[in-house]
Design a protein around this nucleic acid. Structure first.
Lengths: 232, 232
DNA sequence: AAGTGGTCTAGACCACGTC
DNA sequence: ACGTGGTCTAGACCACTTC
């Protein structure tokens, strides 16, 4: 494991365990260098991770300040992960609506940045959190990169499968966020009314070598979904 | 100016001027080190900026690849800036709806992280892009940090004023993104119907010393607003 | 004046891709 | 085998805060 990832994990634990309750500051860079016996850049890389997550902010000349907790039940946007990780302690059910293997036609090939005829999995899922419909998800996966998809995977966490079993290494995800009126079909799945609002996130996820392997459109229940991010 | 900012600006220009049209790659880190006569870390800092903006992505062992342009007319989310910068070439009008100086009561003091009684500017604006209502903006500014606000400022770019005239240094902004039904009032301003969808972004902007100076809630026209970000 | 984070340098070795 | 980006080290000086 990378040193800065390890240190970020450690500091994360120490922060949520309220070790720095009194001061609401973590130790200075110099102190951390001595505690963990690493170079300054390594400490700074770890701190950058926590800063990006919104856990703390650095103030030049003063120190590393812990931020008060954000609003509860919000989903952190700046990760290539799906939504699962952000709902610890809640019951998540992924109801499979449709699941097929297609061959890319011209439009799909353009979207998936692949050749016409490439095999593509198409999956529609209804994601249910604590028994309430949370989102409808329309997803394409390039079968040349994800060679197998079974019902048992699709009803669990696809991302865990890709990461742990296929050992895929995610690079970046381009995200587009907008709002739209629900159509009849999605409104029924989400147990809302046609024309009700929804948040729509279109996601194009690339491997760390830049290859696009997943394109999805997720339609969220506007009464439940609330997203969080930090801009710097 | 910081070296890595300068180099990021230069590379940005070179990319949008299609200098790397052929290869769709920018020079290697080693080449950039020689071109700009700086250390490797400085080059890497510059590249990190462009990566975060979604202009390119690095592939270990292979190079720095330019990304195809994103969807047009989308607003980049990962900046503390307002919306002005992203609409180059369009006509932006900020119609002032309301403008007062308040004293923070308990609820407002909690929101603005200040003492009860602190003077707070409250501004409601309708932002109009190319003659179409784009967003309704409800904003609070702490007067102890922004001592003066005039009509001429409020109808222009408040962010330019804060940055260039008051020389405020922005640190980070916490953003919450959700969707909601428009109420009567906002729907009339946006020339939409009551109950129509809207994207709502709540923004808490902090100075680089961590002090909160601006809290806003912006309600966007769902037919126009489309946000973009890169997750890593 | 002392302490703390921000920028910058120079160099080593590792992991991954390409040939 | 070689080239390229990723991790890590050691150290210098600057900018800002605190006392």
């Amino acid at each position: 494991m990378k040193k800065y990832d390890y240190i970020a994990d450690q500091l994360y634990q120490r922060i949520i365990n309220n070790e720095f309750n009194e001061t609401q500051k973590i130790p200075t860079e110099d102190q951390l260098i001595n505690e963990y016996n690493v170079s300054r850049n390594t400490i700074r890389s770890a701190i950058k991770i926590l800063t990006k997550m919104g856990l703390l902010y650095p103030v030049q000349g003063s120190g590393l300040f812990i931020k008060p907790p954000q609003k509860p039940d919000t989903v952190y946007l700046s990760s290539t992960q799906g939504v699962t990780a952000d709902h610890d302690g809640k019951t998540i059910v992924n109801q499979l609506i449709d699941f097929k293997l297609l061959e890319a036609d011209e439009a799909l090939a353009k979207r998936m940045l692949c050749q016409i005829g490439t095999p593509i999995y198409y999956i529609i899922r209804l994601r249910i959190v604590d028994s309430i419909p949370y989102a409808v998800e329309y997803t394409y996966y390039n079968k040349e990169i994800v060679p197998y998809m079974g019902h048992e995977i699709v009803e669990g966490s696809i991302f865990d499968y890709l990461k742990n079993d296929l050992k895929l290494s995610f690079g970046f995800a381009d995200k587009y966020i907008s709002a739209a009126k629900l159509n009849v079909y999605d409104s029924q799945l989400l147990q809302l009314k046609e024309g009700d609002p929804s948040i729509v996130i279109e996601d194009n996820v690339h491997l760390s070598n830049g290859v696009l392997f997943n394109s999805s459109k997720i339609i969220y229940n506007y009464q439940l979904a609330n997203f969080y991010m930090v801009a710097q």
